[in-house]
Design a protein around this nucleic acid. Sequence first.
DNA 1: AATGAATGAGGATTCATTCAT
DNA 2: GATGAATGAATCCTCATTCAT
Lengths: 196, 196, 196, 196
Amino acid sequence: MTQHPTSEERRPANRGPKAAAGNRAALVTAAREIYAVHGLDVPLSRIARRAGVGQGVLYRHFPDREAIAVAVLEENVRQIEQAAAAEGATPAGVLGVLTWHLTQSAAFIGLLHADGASGRLPAHAFARELSERVERALRGCLPEGHRLGAPDDLMLAVAMVSGAVTGPTHRERAHRALAAWRLLGVTVGPVRPFEG
Amino acid sequence: MTQHPTSEERRPANRGPKAAAGNRAALVTAAREIYAVHGLDVPLSRIARRAGVGQGVLYRHFPDREAIAVAVLEENVRQIEQAAAAEGATPAGVLGVLTWHLTQSAAFIGLLHADGASGRLPAHAFARELSERVERALRGCLPEGHRLGAPDDLMLAVAMVSGAVTGPTHRERAHRALAAWRLLGVTVGPVRPFEG
Amino acid sequence: MTQHPTSEERRPANRGPKAAAGNRAALVTAAREIYAVHGLDVPLSRIARRAGVGQGVLYRHFPDREAIAVAVLEENVRQIEQAAAAEGATPAGVLGVLTWHLTQSAAFIGLLHADGASGRLPAHAFARELSERVERALRGCLPEGHRLGAPDDLMLAVAMVSGAVTGPTHRERAHRALAAWRLLGVTVGPVRPFEG
Amino acid sequence: MTQHPTSEERRPANRGPKAAAGNRAALVTAAREIYAVHGLDVPLSRIARRAGVGQGVLYRHFPDREAIAVAVLEENVRQIEQAAAAEGATPAGVLGVLTWHLTQSAAFIGLLHADGASGRLPAHAFARELSERVERALRGCLPEGHRLGAPDDLMLAVAMVSGAVTGPTHRERAHRALAAWRLLGVTVGPVRPFEG
DNA sequence: AATGAATGAGGATTCATTCAT
DNA sequence: GATGAATGAATCCTCATTCAT
């Protein structure tokens, strides 16, 4: 009554369990690329297709739409944490890493811009949690008396800059982000990913 | 904001051809109310239902999803224009009106926040056009040497504040918006709609 | 981002609102026929296909799986009620009508057999309600001192007979049903639909 | 009924090839428990998970959905056969054992109720075969002139009682089953599993 | 000019089954 | 012999859009 596995068709190769880790990584990568362009509100099937796996694989690794988004954003957040924890981290440098991610990924913008609510993805706990990790990382390297030292100002400023990041090219987005930071009187840079 | 007793499930009988203008208005009102709560990414059928008209009417007045959004946002923009054109308009006052609209409407936020792209609605020319009308209106009442007087700073600041506007209640959103303006060193207020 | 109406394809004719009533009837008929053979646990798409309508039409008329089942079973129940309310209704005659429906429809069997729970269709209020309507109809024409006059015996007996109704052909099912009634010491017949 | 601490989410490590027999038993046990609650229409993956084995193991031992169902029901049937073959078996006693199984297992109900067709499981030969074993066992201990002595009456009565067995609790199901037997004028009891 | 039904494609999700390791 | 990941078809449901009346 239920499933017809189309008995006589041949299936295009089961690459075996070895592929599991690779598939997971491929999914995260595919999701990141697609999110960067289209935001979080994309058909999951598109992610699976781009990763070159079946729909089921996506669901196996990530039980819901939220899970894959978390996996992607989590990597962004981790880089910021690493940048903040590194030797000689400066506010300007860490904010530069953060800004780099903002200019890379519409998804990450969405996360910080507001509450993470976006189209099909309802605002959920994960957004708050990731957002708080970013906040902790940033605050940890803020010196006494920093321009954004007041409790609420830090993430407010981040949200504001996120709101300003638009434009078709990375260059343009970075330009606007820096202009926004300047308008806030905050020194930021260089804008680049964190590299151990 | 509400001129029709649209209780979401109303279904009056065919009101005849005379209702054409009224239907248009009802659709815009319904769309505004729904957009305010749910953002631009809602089923069109819901707007028609709330307006108490058939789906066909919506398509007659607004050929596509974009058109109805424009009609709604256009009213917001017009109010800002009126506020800017009024006797004794001050930057603080006009920005207060703008801020009020930001706190009212998720749709309006989207318009100014970035490029207007949101869920099913691709970024389109109308966003730029409306955005430019807002810019002209604001700049028109900016005195020499205003904090945001530099060419690019004005709309950048607006986008930044838009990015900061979040929260479940109007009160909370207004609070964050004002905090954002303060962080930018811009005086704004009172936050209220424009009334002739 | 969402819907692609395959712009350039032509659609196979919208027969217009006139078709509404006809479509509804066609759906109920299709569902009845399919239910009779396969039980309640069939893909809804199959019903729509058999009725010659799109999936959407089915969902318009019947918001969920339960609704279409109710519509089908309701007709069975109504016939029994009519039979019970008719001039000169006898227990044997009314039970004959009931038995006829049992032998026609696997769905109806499921309703009376137990609690209506069946595969994808969870046991729901509607089953109980319809079942009670059958009970009221039957009880209303039971004379004093009938073999099944005791409060719980009536529907218990019906459930028992339902359990006995099996077989590939109508003839065979009717035969088993009558044998079951006989084993219970209840006179039933003739087995036939009610005709005003 | 339970010999494995199958707490539904257990996932032990690979227990090695020696576990083959144990795995088979665990699968049957898991299937029985799940069938009892949810009927035959459950995902096979759930059975494997509960048994604490991989899906492949299930397919190794039971080539298709039918096979695992047969294995489960077969144990029920065997108990009835044993009860019937025991010293001093009485019709009432054996029917009591049969009734106990009816009240335990939705699956067993389905077997005897009709033709074994249920949701994803098409009616198949195995149902008939198991059903016949039950019949032989019962008939073997029926004395001359028993109420159900006529050739067709015995299994008809069993089917009828199966049809009456419903309800959320074992107690309720047993109550209804006994009421059904009483309505048939057959003495049955006690309702309990067979113990050597 | 309005109504609202019909259409059908699209996206989410589930599972039976296979198969590399 | 066991594991459990991969596959992808099938089903559910929603909605944008058209169009007969």
